[in-house]
Amino acid sequence: MNQTKPTTNKTLVELATFYVGEALCGMDILNIQEINRLMDMTKVPQAPSYVTGILNLRGQIVTIIDLGKKLGLGSTDATLSSRNIIVSSPGEHVGLLVTRLSDVVSADTEKIERAPANMGGIQGEFFSGVYKTDDKLIGILDINKVLRLEEHGH
């Protein structure tokens, strides 16, 4: 899960990047099960506010989390460009609803820096690091932190 962990002889990690609102985030592509644009979700009354709904992914019930809400950036609208990034979490799959996808970036693990306390309005605790490309700054999400249950909902 830890994006900064170098593989045995490579120091490159492929980051799938995407926008949550206006913030550019990324995660190790190996954490991603699939990306889809299924938006036919079932609402779950009384669910934590960051849960958009549940989705039938080939017979599996997948909880969809609005990444924007979870990171404190406000809700993500389901638009033509929005996507669900399905990641595996212990015992289940969880979908992360993002505003739109961006490129896959090969990042040198040694150049990943420690995340600042706050990045574009997002609490630093959700990031495992930041990666600077020529023109962009990618916040690398710590999936475990993002998926961690909060004590009293959100």
Binding site: Q46, I54, Q60, I61
Partner: peptide, 27 residues
């Protein structure tokens, strides 16, 4: 019956979810 994800465990009103004939989910 399919289990609900852990983010939804706090919703006590549901025993799980199921997939209906049209592919959508019912709680």
């Amino acid at each position: 019956i399919k289990p609900l994800g852990r983010h939804l465990q706090q919703c006590k009103g549901y025993a799980g979810a199921t997939i209906m004939g049209d592919g959508r989910i019912a709680l």
